[in-house]
Simulated assay, not measured.
Amino acid sequence: MAYDNDPLTDEEIAGIEESLEDIKAGRVYSEKEAKKRCWTSMIKCTLLNTLHVQ
């Protein structure tokens, strides 16, 4: 397990609090859905970059 001696920043704490609120509200994805969304986003970015370069 990694350990960091530096204290958390206000931004990091806010991000953790926001994530906890999402979890409590049920705004979560299964591992399968998260992978699907990740791949879909990656494919879209690749296609957009390819079209933009041409």
Score class of each variant (00 low, 15 high):
residue 9 T to W: 04
residue 44 K to E: 12
residue 5 N to V: 10
residue 32 K to V: 12
residue 49 N to D: 06
residue 37 R to P: 05
residue 35 K to V: 04
residue 35 K to G: 02
residue 8 L to Y: 05
residue 35 K to R: 14
residue 16 I to H: 00
residue 18 E to I: 02
residue 30 S to P: 00
residue 18 E to R: 05
residue 43 I to K: 04
residue 7 P to L: 01
residue 52 H to V: 07
residue 3 Y to E: 12
residue 31 E to C: 05
residue 1 M to Q: 11
residue 51 L to M: 11
residue 46 T to C: 13
residue 27 R to A: 06
residue 36 K to N: 07
residue 7 P to M: 02
residue 29 Y to L: 09
residue 46 T to H: 15
residue 40 T to E: 10
residue 31 E to Q: 09
residue 45 C to K: 11
residue 4 D to E: 11
residue 5 N to E: 12
residue 7 P to Q: 03
residue 28 V to Q: 07
residue 20 L to M: 13
residue 15 G to M: 04
residue 35 K to S: 04
residue 8 L to F: 05
residue 13 I to N: 03
residue 20 L to D: 15
residue 20 L to T: 08
residue 15 G to W: 02
residue 25 A to R: 15
residue 1 M to W: 04
residue 1 M to F: 02
residue 27 R to N: 12
residue 40 T to A: 10
residue 43 I to Y: 02
residue 22 D to N: 14
residue 24 K to L: 08
residue 21 E to F: 02
residue 4 D to V: 15
residue 45 C to F: 15
residue 31 E to R: 12
residue 3 Y to M: 08
residue 27 R to L: 03
residue 32 K to R: 13
residue 41 S to P: 03
residue 9 T to G: 07
residue 28 V to W: 04
residue 6 D to V: 03
residue 10 D to G: 08
residue 38 C to Y: 06
residue 17 E to I: 08
residue 11 E to R: 00
residue 17 E to F: 02
residue 26 G to T: 00
residue 33 E to K: 15
residue 22 D to W: 03
residue 45 C to I: 13
residue 19 S to G: 12
residue 47 L to Q: 13
residue 23 I to D: 12
residue 9 T to E: 01
residue 2 A to Y: 06
